[in-house]
Computed example of a mutant assay.
Amino acid sequence: MAETTAGRVTRRRGRTRARLLDAAFTVFAAKGFGRVSIEEVCEAAGFSRGAFYSNFATLDELFFALYRARADLIAEQVTAALALDGPGLDVPAAVDRVTEVLLLDVDWLLVKTDFLVHAARDPAVAQALLGHRARLRQAIADRLSRAAGHAPLPAALGGADGAAHAVVAAYDGVTTQLLLDRDVDAARAWLRRLLTALLTAGGTPHGSSHDS
């Protein structure tokens, strides 16, 4: 009986935490991290401050939990998108899949940008953010390394690690423009161009018929 009760408490707390994170995402995307209070998050989630403090010590802690959950999901999606071609890598197809994963949610980009600015002013948070970015790059580099014998990378990139850095840098640049003009189709087209050029030795993969 005690284990059953504990299980119910754990599940209920998990649901409460998930609702707080979902509500925080909506409020942060609409107003910005620095303009949101704990009370606003609680009101959006339909909970009291007590529910908040039973899950998070501070708004910063909730913000980082939100970022970590979303960043981990994106890393998993990118890894899955790159894993569909067996030992080789169909660069145009992989680029299309990755582009679709990375550019679906402008609200996430708003929250991510807020978190980047916040982290830039807090060395401890910056280190945590760098760790997440490094894991994403490593997932990309690992996949590119496995495919290197089938789809050689441009020598100028310095191997799979350099290519992974270039992929993330291209994404960062394109999404900055996306935040300003909200043109998802243009951002997707530019990211496709950039990634295809970066990841193919001649800039145009053999057999590719993709247009911009």
Rank of each mutant, 00 (worst) to 15 (best):
A2Y: 08
E3V: 14
E3S: 14
T5H: 08
G7L: 11
T10I: 12
T10M: 11
L21N: 04
L21S: 09
A23S: 12
A23K: 02
A23Q: 04
K31D: 15
F33N: 00
G34V: 06
R35N: 13
I38C: 09
E39H: 11
C42F: 07
F52V: 09
Y53K: 06
S54A: 14
D60R: 12
D60G: 14
F63N: 10
Y67N: 13
Y67W: 14
A69K: 15
A71W: 07
D72W: 00
E76T: 14
A81P: 07
A81S: 12
P87T: 11
G88Q: 03
V95L: 02
L102K: 07
L102G: 11
L103R: 06
V111Q: 06
V111C: 11
D114K: 10
F115V: 11
A124I: 08
A128C: 03
G131C: 05
L136G: 13
Q138V: 07
I140R: 01
S145C: 09
R146N: 05
G149M: 09
G159I: 03
D161N: 11
D161L: 03
V168P: 02
A169V: 08
D172P: 02
D172R: 13
D172H: 09
T176A: 14
D181A: 06
A186S: 13
A186H: 03
W190C: 10
L191W: 01
R192Y: 00
R192F: 00
T200W: 02
G202V: 01
G202N: 09
G203L: 04
H206D: 13
G207K: 02
D211F: 05
